[in-house]
Write a protein that binds this DNA or RNA. Sequence first.
DNA 1: ATACTATAACTGACCGGTCAGTCATGTATT
DNA 2: AATACATGACTGACCGGTCAGTTATAGTAT
Lengths: 200, 200
Amino acid sequence: MSPRPNVSDERKAQILNAAEQVFNKKGFDLARMDDIADKTGLSKGTLYLYFKSKDDLIIAILERIFQGVFRQLERREGDELSATEAVSQFTEAAIRDYKRMLHIIPVAYEFLALAFRNKTVQKALKQYFRHYMDVLVPMIQRGIDSGEFRQVDPQEVAIAAGAIYEGTVLLWVYDSTLIDMERHIRSSIRLLLEGIQVPA
Amino acid sequence: MSPRPNVSDERKAQILNAAEQVFNKKGFDLARMDDIADKTGLSKGTLYLYFKSKDDLIIAILERIFQGVFRQLERREGDELSATEAVSQFTEAAIRDYKRMLHIIPVAYEFLALAFRNKTVQKALKQYFRHYMDVLVPMIQRGIDSGEFRQVDPQEVAIAAGAIYEGTVLLWVYDSTLIDMERHIRSSIRLLLEGIQVPA
DNA sequence: ATACTATAACTGACCGGTCAGTCATGTATT
DNA sequence: AATACATGACTGACCGGTCAGTTATAGTAT
């Protein structure tokens, strides 16, 4: 048996949590390994027992975030609902996601800037977006087939919806006093849906 | 008379152009003052004759960008058009703006991340967004008053449109092969407008 | 024309602070 | 004793910013 219990997983999570907070507060570059060490209550040397570099730490954080988002996206449901209701439920799930992720938004935008310079990041974003489209496009297509929606291009509608989700978060960053993320995502999607519904 | 002609304005522009390129390519922190100096063909010392720090340089770049956008926003026209046409023209202007700004998008996202940590940046963004709303909300209100649009909340519609503009750019960053910025901004705004128009 | 002067424009070696990453040493557990 | 875990002082590369010195040019004097 080991002379000491294996604490590797706890330590890693503990370090990632601290690092996430520090990165959010200061940004990648201004975040010091010493800051993260202080936050965990461990020493800097110990960080390097569990992560071999600062980059390694960042990558691990981003992976953890994307894993969460993918899990959420993959939970498809509501095939028995009307297309409007299905999109609305999807929207509610998206809102829950965004609210859960509010605290890592600063890192997320730094990550976006990085996308222009890093192939791996580009791939992750592309994959995330395709996932999203794979869920939403068929949902809209079903609405068209059932006569609930007009003859629109389902991909264009899905892109409009995606733009509304992501864009509302951005507007909220611009001015959080004027934008209520939850309310405005909901109202914008409602306007979009009303535009494609076949009048009763 | 001066022993040498004043080249201050040309130099500043020259340095800002070079800095913009380098910041876009490497990001703010990885960009070296020496890189910028090399790009201009001037020496590092000369940069400091015109800008007192690296921060000063990035601030000047962002100011230049915002000035351009404000100039665009303030050019109101089209009071004699239908509201739909006015919004469409505004959209075309926005598309032109975005296309013109494509090359500084990486810096823009770094700037957004900064918004969470910097009051000045927060103020600039807020101002930008208010400007935008000040133009678009009355445009939509006019459509409602004239009976062209349904009784919707004009602010909600303006926010939806703003989210579409900004969000489409973001989706394009995610996957530039799937998103045609110009086409998808246009189609999404069209869907939105169709949703608020009073049926003929 | 030529030489001289004043000064704006420019240069680049250098300084000093910073910080990611290392490692010799120590401690707790079995 | 053996092993896993932990420490924090230390190192050295790096880079923003400085400044003593150099160069170019417009005007002036001869």
